[in-house]
């Protein structure tokens, strides 16, 4: 490992050289490489994750270019995962990059999540997140939830057996929701929520995240709030009254 390139992050006591080794030996899956997903994938690769699997079946459109990382005008019409894979390898050739030209559904979620130690949610609809939540719980794998709209968004760590899950607190488990292009989102909100999520991801990989709090961020006000979400015994996914 070319350690010099990570000097600035290992100088941070929260990471330290032992933490960098943990990041290097980790594998992550990024589901959806749109606004949040492309940003999170780029950050994980820059930070030196060992292996990354990116999953998306979309093509690059001009309406993506204001906020999505890595894509350029010349990429319009190309598969997002192909462009992203090639860019990620240019950024850090030590990283193993796998591209899956697929859309995550309840049918393939477990297979996709099995590629990594940790899943990062870059999806844009409720059903996909519901599927990640259920499959991650079954496979006992942690994941990081993100969602953005307008000037605000959410991030939350979900660690089966330790924290509450996405279904514990009333977040919709099904449906398409409204896309960013229609509902509107400002690029800085996308980047800010992605940064929070990557911090949670690092903490999970270093064994330093336990809380599973919901982080609410509004870049316009600006405002950041952390709200505890205790495990819900009646949760249909992780509730202790069901099969745990």
């Amino acid at each position: 490992m070319d350690f010099d390139r990570y000097l600035s992050q290992v100088a941070v006591p929260e990471v330290f050289p032992s933490g960098q080794k943990a990041i290097k030996s980790s594998s992550v899956v990024v589901v959806g490489v749109g606004g949040t997903g492309s940003t999170m994938a780029e950050m994980m690769v820059r930070m030196g994750v060992g292996r990354i699997t990116i999953v998306d079946d979309d093509i690059v459109e001009s309406s993506n270019l204001n906020r999505q990382a890595m894509y350029r005008e010349s990429d319009i019409g190309l598969k997002k995962v192909d462009v992203a894979k090639s860019e990620l390898l240019k950024i850090n050739s030590d990283v193993e990059v796998e591209a899956l030209d697929e859309r995550l559904t309840i049918y393939n979620a477990e297979d996709i999540i099995s590629y990594g130690k940790l899943t990062l949610d870059g999806t844009d609809n409720y059903s996909a997140r519901g599927a990640i939540n259920e499959s991650s719980f079954r496979l006992k794998k942690p994941w990081v939830f993100t969602a953005v709209e307008g000037t605000f968004g959410y991030a939350k760590a979900i660690i089966p057996g330790k924290t509450s899950c996405l279904s514990c607190f009333g977040y919709p488990q099904k449906g398409e929701g409204v896309s960013c292009t229609i509902q509107g989102v400002i690029p800085s909100a996308v980047r800010a929520v992605s940064s929070l999520a990557i911090t949670l991801a690092m903490k999970i990989l270093l064994g330093k995240e336990e809380s599973g709090d919901l982080i609410y961020l509004d870049v316009w006000k600006p405002m950041l709030e952390t709200l505890p979400i205790p495990r819900n015994d009646d949760c249909t996914v992780c509730g202790r009254k069901g099969a745990d």
């Binding site: 606004g35 997903g37 844009d124 709209e149 968004g153 514990c168 009333g170 960013c180 709200l227 979400i229």
Partner: peptide, 28 residues
């Protein structure tokens, strides 16, 4: 959320409680 914590929506409110109401969001 009730008093800054999420929990069961069947929980009864009490005098002086603060209830925070957030929109769900689906975008990425």
């Amino acid at each position: 959320a009730l008093n800054g914590r999420f929990g069961n929506e069947k929980t009864l409110i009490s005098d002086g409680d603060t209830i925070s109401v957030f929109p769900p969001v689906s975008g990425g």
